[in-house]
Write a protein that binds this DNA or RNA. Structure first.
Length: 423
RNA sequence: GGAGGGAUGGGUGAGUGGCUGAAACCAGUAGUUUGCUAAACUGCCGUACGGGUGACUGUACCGGGGGUUCGAAUCCCCCUCCCUCCGCCA
């Protein structure tokens, strides 16, 4: 969430910039500011009385020591009323603070100045593109290729779990493992530190990265233990730094992680979700950084460059889009989406989303840093990106590389798969 | 799952009702000394929210939440986590 101070200092600007995200913040901000005034006033009152109480208690202690027990009862009587008023004020304070956070979490992150206006996907702006469009003589969509070469079994997944939980088999399973290892090796080589996080997280973690409370319905919830299956490794990996104060010299922190990802995708099933296009469980390698505010946008560029290099090595046609305000996520300040062209489906598939959240997550996480010699802590910036999500990459590899002899494996993957063709 | 023991500042660890936001040591940091390094010595060294231009100052926080008391790190209750033993188990 945004910090109160930021909202107060930049009220007009916040309202203006949130219009890019098609969000009207004016009345919420007014509520917040008046709640905060109220908070300060109530807190000041409570603290004055608490100070009085502390002095009185010390006096009583001294009276006891001096043996003046007769004077004690008069002082004690005074504390009774004080205590009541303090309790009352603190109850009010708690209530005000609750209302304040309730309002604060309703406001999305403020978009970066370079975010284009727009309603949805059609208004995203092409940043650059590359790769060679394949010319296919056969053009089976990946769901047919999967059947033809017995790589992935959706029916079997439906039997043991449900729709959207595929079973990878034989060369299909090995291709999956190859991609995971390839992506992790590339991230390690680029200086990211590998972690293997838990796949279930608690409520605090869900709140820290912004999945809770807003997107509760998107996550699988293990209610008996109140744990959530992660929709992305971003959640556990970013939460590694929840309630942490880093030294300025430790920044940037660079982590990468492979994880299975679980998404309920409630209400988003319809056309265009055949095969691997949308799943409830899929594999992904994620890169996550914690950065100094002065460096975060330069770092965002290096993350974009890293993802681009992966797709180029896989020899897929790609393009990068700068998301418009209407298509961006609630928590992001600037997002670049990567898409690869799926030649048989004849459509672009999103395979990565790289974002700078600035202090939005850090504020929820209480993720701060302190520069050497500085007295004050400040909120760090968090960033993350898929590098990469597997299913649609697999779909594009299968479709784009199909030949009469079989499916050609990109050169860079052959050392990982141990085979260069699926036939 | 059963029985017992624990949780204090970056670390080790004192502290069983007021003089403790918290000893001491280590680490860190600034300085003095010193041919350099090391050592020694001295100062500083938690977080958040208020008030003040500022020096400074108020309040809260000793795993989390409640309670007792004029007053709680210290006493009581609940929860979480860690350790030991037993049971179960990939």
């Amino acid at each position: 969430m945004l910090t109160l101070k930021f909202i107060q200092d930049n009220k007009a600007d916040v309202i203006k910039r949130l219009k890019t995200k098609r969000f009207d913040a004016a009345s919420i901000i007014d509520t917040i500011i008046s709640l905060d005034d109220n908070r300060k006033q109530t807190q000041a009152q409570a603290e004055t009385l608490e100070a009085e109480m502390n002095t009185l208690s010390k006096e009583i202690g001294l009276l006891f020591k001096a043996g003046k027990t007769d004077e004690v009862s008069a002082s004690k009587a005074k504390t009774v009323e004080l205590k009541e008023r303090i309790k009352d004020l603190n109850t009010q304070l708690e209530d005000i603070n609750r209302q304040l956070t309730a309002q604060l979490v309703l406001i999305p992150n403020v978009p970066h100045s370079t975010v284009p206006e727009g309603k949805g996907a059609d208004d995203n702006v092409l940043v650059r593109e590359g790769g060679v469009m394949p010319t296919l003589t056969n053009d089976l969509p990946h769901w047919d290729l999967i059947k033809k070469y017995d790589l992935i079994d959706f029916e079997l997944g439906t039997k043991i779990t449900g729709a959207g939980f595929p079973v990878y088999k034989g060369k299909g399973a090995r291709l999956q493992r190859a991609l995971i290892n390839f992506f992790l090796d590339e991230a390690n080589n680029a200086g990211y530190n590998e972690v293997l996080p838990p796949l279930l997280v608690n409520e605090e973690s869900g709140f820290g990265t912004g999945q809770l409370p807003d997107k509760e319905g998107q996550m699988y919830h293990a209610t008996a233990d109140n744990l959530y299956l992660i929709p992305t490794a971003e959640v556990p990996v970013t939460n590694l730094y929840r309630d942490v104060i880093l030294k300025g010299s430790e920044l940037p922190v660079r982590n990468c992680a492979y994880s299975a990802c679980f998404r309920r995708e409630a209400g988003s099933w319809g056309a265009d979700v055949r095969g691997l296009n949308r799943l409830h469980q899929f594999d992904k390698v994620e890169i996550v950084q914690v950065a100094h505010p002065d460096q975060s946008y330069a770092i965002l560029d290096t993350m974009v460059a890293h993802v681009q290099s992966l797709i180029e090595k896989l020899e897929l046609p790609w393009r990068i889009l700068r998301l418009c305000g209407g298509d961006m996520s609630f928590t992001s300040a600037l997002t670049f989406d990567f898409e690869v062209y799926s030649a048989a489906q004849k459509r672009w598939l999103e395979v990565s989303s790289v974002s700078n959240f600035e202090t939005y997550q850090a504020n929820r996480l209480k993720l701060r840093f302190k520069d050497d010699g500085d007295k004050k802590t400040q909120l760090a910036h968090t960033l993350n990106g898929s590098a990469l999500a597997l299913p649609r990459i697999v779909a594009a590899i299968l479709e784009n590389n199909q030949t009469a002899e079989g499916i050609r494996i990109p050169k860079v993957l052959v050392p990982y798969t141990g085979f260069d063709i699926i036939n």
